[in-house]
Nucleic acid binder design. Structure first.
Length: 423
RNA sequence: GGAGGAAUGGCAGAGUGGUCGAAUGCACCAGUCUUGAAAACUGGCGAGGGUCACACCUCCGGGGGUUCGAAUCCCUCUUCCUCCGCCA
């Protein structure tokens, strides 16, 4: 959520930047500012009324104490009207504040200067590419065929137990998955991230804190009996650790990494592009989350990008890095880099990581602040990234590392797997 | 799931209807003293709104109510503790 004060002070620039997202920023901000003015106006009136009745109450108290009950009774009558008035103003204020809040929830984050203008993923900007795309035999298979051939992932079984998009990993497939999780966590902790295990269900407040609610209500599985949501990413529980926190600036940077399953409804997506591991309702992901001083957040973002590159380099997978355009940029992000692995057998790029700086957008919702040099509260910046999302990395490994004699496990994973070939 | 108790500032902990945003201690910050540090002393020290700055307003787990007036009384929800039940 954008800060009202910031909107008031930088209306021009914010309008211009938000327009990159193809929304009618001008009228949106106009409504916000009008409501904000109305809110302050009502607040001022309410404050004056309350001040008046506070004053009267004190006088009445004094009169009672000095035994002048008769005079007190007269004053009491005067408070009735004030009470009614403040009740009315209070109701007004609440409904205005609520309306304002709802409006603010509808405004996405302001894209960073470097974000290219665009309407879809086709306009994303490729900024880096590394690794060699292997030349496979003409009989090379896509990962879902390989999964069947080596009996390491059973999609049909998942359908029986839960439904489409819930695969069952078996034998070396399950082991490879576990190996990847361990490897990622080790890499992340070596880079200074503290490993953490968090709940996989979150409450409504947490959903609002990181911005999944109200924007992406339909994307999350909602357990109505207890009003909890299955997490779509570890970002939600991990970042919400800092909800209502005033950190000490000396604690920065705060770095966490956590493995969780992720649950996404992905309503309405079927077809060839969602075959196999390409898109699932449940998948595993290792996430990195940082809380940063605002001055340092973009340096931190660069550092996270380098970190993910390092992992992909070690896995020896061909990948590229994209700077998301305004049309593809997430609602809450100011700048996002996507990582994609090339799926040789499918002849397409698969997103395997998304690294974002949210600046103060989430912090504002979370009320995540720190004391600056002058002892004043300031919003911190939050960032996160996948390091990494499992299924498509797995798909990439299966497809790119297939040989006539089986799938050759990347060297760094062998100690974690306990085997070097799936055959 | 049942019975009882509790929830106050970063922490600990007073406060049971009136000038309490809240004693006191610890922690923290600044100053004095000191070669420096510690100790001691002095001052400061919650958050949000509002204002050029004051004033002023709101917040004592959340929400609602009683009252001229609520941290204090009532209702309700949440969480924690103790006991019972169930259980990996």
């Amino acid at each position: 959520m954008l800060q009202l004060q910031v909107i008031r002070d930088n209306r021009e620039e914010i309008t211009k930047a938000l327009n990159k997202r193809k929304i009618d920023a001008d009228s949106l901000l106009n409504n916000v500012l009008q409501l904000d003015e109305k809110r302050r106006d009502t607040q001022t009136k309410l404050d004056a009324t309350l001040a008046e009745s506070n004053k009267l109450s004190k006088e009445i108290g004094g009169l009672f104490k000095s035994g002048k009950a008769a005079e007190a009774t007269i004053l009491k009558e005067k408070t009735g009207a004030l009470k009614e008035e403040s009740k009315q103003l209070g109701d007004d204020l609440n409904s205005i504040a609520e309306e304002l809040q709802n409006l603010l929830y509808q405004i996405p984050n302001v894209p960073h200067d470097s974000v290219p203008t665009g309407t879809s993923e086709d306009d994303n900007e490729e900024i880096f590419k590394e690794g060699t795309i292997p030349v496979l035999d003409s009989d090379a298979l896509p990962h879902w065929e390989l999964a069947k051939k080596y009996d390491i992932i059973d999609f049909e079984l998942g359908v029986k137990i839960a439904g489409a998009g819930f695969p069952v990993y078996k034998g070396k497939g399950a082991r490879l998955q576990r190996a990847l999780i361990s490897y990622f966590l080790d890499k992340n902790t070596a880079a200074g991230y503290t490993e953490i295990q968090v709940p996989h269900l979150v409450n409504e407040a947490s959903g609002y804190g990181t911005g999944q609610l109200p924007d992406k209500e339909g994307q999350m599985y909602h357990i109505t009996a207890d009003d909890l949501y299955l997490i779509p990413t570890a970002e939600v529980p991990v970042t919400n650790i800092f909800r209502d926190v005033i950190a000490n600036k000396d604690e920065f940077p705060i770095c966490y990494t956590g493995y969780t399953p992720c649950f996404r409804r992905e309503a309405g997506s079927y077809g060839a592009h969602v075959r196999g591991l390409n898109r699932l309702h449940q998948f595993d992901k290792v996430e990195i989350v940082r809380v940063e001083h605002p001055e340092n957040s973009y340096a931190a973002l660069d550092g996270m990008v380098e970190h993910v590159k390092d992992i992909l380099r070690e896995l020896n997978l061909p990948y590229r890095v994209l700077r998301l355009c305004s049309g593809d940029l997430g609602f809450t992000a100011a700048l996002t880099y996507d990582f994609e692995v090339f799926s040789t057998a499918q002849d397409r790029w698969l997103e395997i990581s998304s690294v974002s700086n949210f600046e103060a957008y989430q912090a504002n919702r979370l009320k995540l602040r720190f004391k600056d040099e002058n002892g004043k509260s300031q919003l911190a910046h939050t960032l996160n990234g996948s390091a990494l999302a499992l299924p498509r990395v797995l798909a990439g490994i299966l497809e790119n590392c297939q040989t006539a004699n089986g799938i050759k496990i990347p060297e760094v994973l062998v100690p974690y797997c306990g085997f070097d070939t799936i055959d």
